[in-house]
């Protein structure tokens, strides 16, 4: 599997996700600078976490118009898988590759801690190695993770099974108090219609080894590597 990680000024999880991809897929990703207009021929494009452009204007707003994003959008349209983690999710919504928007956390605080998540759909290359309804523990670290979309869009996402992950309690119950950011319907991650583009606020790349405090993020990359194995 060949992958590319897009590096924006202010990205800070680019190397973490590169390590996760290299260790689990066995192939080192190409690091592509945001000012580049071309991306090597790859099976997966990753928009990493961080604070691209210092979150100027809105998180992800400036990065969504970076030169490289024209090519990311063109590849996504052709069905090349694109994964956006945290700031990458914000960039995908700002670029219109995923619906909705990520607003300031309802509690206003930057939230940096492990959260429990419920896997709502395993019908994707990203979530195929989890089981339906599985509860996983993955950290979040963001100030703008409060997912918003109009009721029609939320109904459509739920109706088509495009909600990938929801914030939940440790017993798997999903209620507002279990959301670290006030997200609509506790949404933590979504797919596009073809399930080839995924955005999520939690950081699976931070929990790929017990030494890092957990390995619940590992199946995420194993699933991708398995699905895209050449």
């Amino acid at each position: 599997m060949k992958s590319a990680v897009i590096v924006f000024p202010g990205s800070n999880c680019d190397r973490d996700v590169a390590v996760a991809l290299a260790r689990i897929s066995g192939s080192k990703p190409a690091m592509v600078w945001h000012g580049d207009k071309t991306i090597p021929k790859v099976d997966l494009i990753v928009l990493p976490g961080g604070f691209s452009y210092g979150d100027y204007l809105r998180s992800g707003a400036m990065a969504a118009h970076s030169p490289v994003m024209t090519e990311v959008a063109a590849r996504a349209k052709r069905g090349v898988p694109v994964l956006g983690i945290c700031n990458g999710f914000q960039i995908l919504t700002e670029a219109g590759l995923l619906p909705g928007a990520l607003m300031r956390n309802a509690g206003l605080h930057f939230v940096c801690r492990d959260v429990a998540l419920k896997v709502e759909s395993t019908e994707s290359m990203f979530t195929r190695r989890y089981s339906q309804g599985q509860i996983v523990r993955i950290p979040v670290a963001h100030a703008d993770g409060n997912y918003r979309a109009d009721a029609k869009t939320l109904d459509r996402l739920e109706g088509k099974g495009l909600v990938a992950l929801r914030y939940c309690g440790s017993d798997g119950t999903v209620s507002e108090k279990d959301s670290p950011n006030g997200s609509a319907r506790n949404i933590a991650g979504i797919f596009n219609d073809k399930r080839t583009v995924m955005g999520l606020m939690p950081h699976p790349e931070r929990v790929i080894e017990p030494l890092l405090g957990g390995s619940d993020g590992r199946p995420f990359f194993e699933g991708i590597a398995e699905a895209l194995a050449a």
């Binding site: 204007l57 707003a61 700002e94 928007a101 918003r148 979309a149 109009d150």
Partner: peptide, 8 residues
């Protein structure tokens, strides 16, 4: 296109 996010 940029200044506002018309979703919100």
């Amino acid at each position: 296109r940029l200044l506002a996010n018309t979703v919100i």
